[in-house]
Simulated assay, not measured.
Amino acid sequence: MTLHAKLAGMAALCLAWSAGALAQAPKASPERPSVNDAGALTVPGFEADFSSFASDVARRSFIEEHSPAFYASPIARMHTLPIAEQRKILDRDYLEPRIAKARAAFPVKITPQTIGGVYTETIEPAGGVAPHNKAKVLINLHGGGFMMGARTNGQLESIPVAGLGGYRVVAVDYRQAPEHRFPAGSEDVATVYRDLLKSYKPENIGIFGCSAGGLLAAQAAAWFQKQGLPRPGAIGIFCASAGDLGEGDSRYTGSVLNGRPAPPSGPARDMAANPYFAGVDMADPMVSPSRHPEVLAKFPPTLLISSTRDFAMSAALNTHRALIKAGAEAELHLWDGLQHFFFADVDLPESRDAFQVMVGFFDRRLGQ
């Protein structure tokens, strides 16, 4: 068959498919999306199927998290309470049950230790650190919006990495808002890092965190530059970015596809509105490293993890692009159909995949 005949056949096939699709397509809604002069989009109500790329376990979990029982639970209403009550509810109703599941799946031992006045917990495999990781250590910086998750979130994020990877992980209980302000967290991370440098080479130290902790990992990498500290071996920015967290398309898609009201339109101020950053210049390279190529160029190899229903996805994409453009080494992994901090549930197949990615990254990058 000649090339012309092949192309003609392909064209005929495409036309036939298009005609069939048009014949079966539902009638267009009389309500059309509209765009104003500023480019803001208004979309009438629509129905979105759950992602066909996500697991059935993830689908069932999504349904449970939007059940009447969940909406009647204290955790669904905790945002209306004082911060002390929010912390108690988050720990008791959300994090502690997940920590129990994580410890059952990945047996570990947890040892409290205060380093330079900073409370930490060392989390190691129950059978001990793997021989090939004896000279390596990881620092975890927990999530929780710079206001919650102290100790509990650090355990939940650290247990799978320690248990699966055979690593010693030092979870840092850094100072948070509303009691403290930036750069308290960066200072605490630097305190722990300096202490670990007495026992470990910098190239054998990795830092990772999720959400606020992921942003803090990026801020710590910038802070170390300012303080003249050696560059760590690698960092992980999970469900977060190196600045402008909460901006971009996923500010809206993350909310809507998770069955929550869309945030108000206009300039995103998620970070600036956080009491941890009260009175802080958000363009400061120690706050938003992603805006400063000269800072990103000195970053260690960086792993970014996000998901398509994560409000932080767009900022993660922007950070990855900025790192590559600055000449830094960076990897980006996205999971479709999943939400912010999806790997908090160790039962999800996608969580196991994410843990393997994390461990594999530090295995490859530390010690270089």
Rank of each mutant, 00 (worst) to 15 (best):
A8E: 10
M10A: 11
A16I: 14
W17R: 15
G20M: 14
A23M: 09
P30A: 08
L41T: 15
V43G: 11
P44F: 00
A48P: 06
F53A: 14
F53P: 05
F53Y: 14
A54P: 08
D56K: 10
V57F: 08
S67P: 12
A69G: 00
F70Q: 09
Y71R: 11
P74R: 09
R77L: 15
M78W: 08
H79T: 11
K88E: 11
L90V: 14
D91G: 09
L95Y: 06
E96I: 14
P97F: 05
K101N: 15
R103T: 07
A104F: 14
V108H: 02
I110G: 02
T111G: 01
T122G: 09
A126M: 14
G128A: 05
A130Y: 07
K134T: 15
A135F: 08
V137F: 03
M148W: 13
G154A: 06
A162D: 03
G163C: 03
V170Q: 13
V172L: 04
D173P: 06
Y174W: 03
P183F: 02
A184K: 06
G185N: 01
G185K: 00
S186Q: 13
D188F: 02
T191S: 02
T191P: 01
R194D: 09
D195Y: 09
F208N: 05
G213K: 04
G213L: 01
L215P: 03
A217P: 06
A222M: 08
P232Y: 07
A234F: 15
I235N: 12
F238Y: 13
F238M: 12
G246V: 08
T253F: 04
T253N: 07
P261S: 03
A272F: 03
A272T: 05
P275Q: 10
P275M: 13
Y276C: 05
G279P: 00
M282P: 04
A283E: 15
P285W: 06
P289Y: 00
H292C: 02
A297C: 02
P300M: 04
P300G: 05
D310I: 12
D310P: 14
A316V: 06
L323R: 07
I324C: 15
A330N: 06
H333M: 12
L334I: 15
L334A: 06
H340L: 00
F341Y: 14
D347G: 11
D347L: 15
L348E: 08
E350Q: 01
F361V: 02
F361A: 03
F362V: 00
R364N: 01
R364I: 00
